[in-house]
């Protein structure tokens, strides 16, 4: 497999306190909607697309976070399809997957990496 190095642009998404602990919020970047999750219980931050691919709804940021055997996940509020926050793969046995983005925290702000 070819490894292509892509240039990542970091966008300043929000103040860290804007994202609820152990929950998510949605960030607008141009026409993109990105769900940012503050998984405080694990001390981890994640970002994914906000669109749930099951019924094409812009809602993943409103989903509950949790884990399945240690793997962090988010459950879509509509029909509880769950997705890995690490790989974006659907964890409830269907062929969907979502895009994940890198996240970093600097000076009290969340940054999301966009290619």
């Amino acid at each position: 497999m070819d490894i292509v190095s892509k240039k990542i642009t970091w966008i300043k998404a929000a103040k860290t306190e804007e994202i609820p602990a152990n929950g998510g919020a949605c960030i607008k970047h141009g026409s993109k909607q990105i769900a940012v999750f503050n998984f405080e219980k694990r001390g981890e931050w994640y970002a994914t697309q906000n669109l749930c691919p099951h019924k094409m709804q812009m809602v993943l940021s409103r989903g509950m976070v949790g884990d399945k055997e240690g793997e962090p996940k988010v459950a879509c509020p509509f029909h509880k399809k769950t997705f890995s926050l690490q790989t974006g793969e659907c964890m409830s046995g269907e062929d969907y997957s979502i895009k994940t983005y890198p996240v970093k925290i600097e000076d009290g702000y969340v940054y999301v990496g966009i290619e």
């Binding site: 219980k41 509950m64 949790g66 884990d67 399945k68 509880k80 769950t82």
Partner: peptide, 18 residues
């Protein structure tokens, strides 16, 4: 969070939280 800390394990999920 306290309940999970004292009586559960892992990070919870969409079943036990509600």
């Amino acid at each position: 969070n306290e309940l999970l800390e004292q009586y559960g394990k892992g990070d919870g999920c969409e079943v036990c939280k509600p």
